[in-house]
Design a protein around this nucleic acid. Sequence first.
DNA 1: TATTGTTATACTCTATAACTATA
DNA 2: TATAGTTATAGAGTATAACAATA
Lengths: 161, 161
Amino acid sequence: MATTSSRTQRTDPLTLEVVELIGTVVARYHEEYDAAAGKHALTGAQARVLGLLSLEPLPMRRIAQKLKCEPSNITGIIDRLEARGLVERRPDPADRRVKLAAPTEEGLTVARSLRESLNFAREPLAELSREERLSLRGLLRRMVGEDAGLLADPATPAGYD
Amino acid sequence: MATTSSRTQRTDPLTLEVVELIGTVVARYHEEYDAAAGKHALTGAQARVLGLLSLEPLPMRRIAQKLKCEPSNITGIIDRLEARGLVERRPDPADRRVKLAAPTEEGLTVARSLRESLNFAREPLAELSREERLSLRGLLRRMVGEDAGLLADPATPAGYD
DNA sequence: TATTGTTATACTCTATAACTATA
DNA sequence: TATAGTTATAGAGTATAACAATA
């Protein structure tokens, strides 16, 4: 025991400030995300799904799993994206029960635009030098508990694509 | 120019990974937040408002400003919190147009419980030493652009109380 | 006149349950 | 029978517009 225990001191000012800063980052993240989606007249959920599908077409069921919501909700979201010509439903040759949701050409374009105008932290991160970003990566990795780089699904970086 | 420009290289792997990690943190943040709210059968918005009011009673208008939504939405949220006996509407002696939303005793208790079970990052941060948390704070501060500690509203740390 | 809170309306997201068509 | 997607339904959050009470 070198200095004051950092595990028992649950409300020390330093930890609280870091938590607060993370809250700020989270808020900033959403502001950017919603603003980017809004530019294309998309809701957050729609933008998220479109971003997912731009990586690879997915069965409805898989989308629900990625979004952590009930499959019945996906129907409506895809309906709206389809009505706007950004997504289309394709039959799955292997299983005639499943429908694959895939982005159209325009959908891909919008997804790309979204990703570019989005990419939160690109701006904020620009403030940091390479060394600092390396340091930040290390700290975040430890926070996230990603010791070796084991993500449940390689295609799913996080909740928000 | 020491190494490769870090501002023009917009898609370098390091930056992308950090962005990805931030996305993971954001997702984790919400999981914890929603789980904590769910334990009390509260929605995210309700928990957020209750948390705000636990710091100080606020006019409906102010709540909308803090949540960055239209004032008309607050009516319903406060209605539901009031129906559950967690919040009450008080007249403002100074201006009879405004109604102050204030937590009840039970509301304060729930808010406290929420804050305790919540406090995201307390666990993850426990993994970091004091020095590492100091380092993380510094990096986040720079990301957030909080050079001196100038927040628009001292009572509002972030989007999520 | 301007402002505060509310109501009315409409849309989206969400969960639950029941239905259909496949498997 | 089990599964994929859908439909129907209900609750909640959101924005817009119009309203009553007060300033």
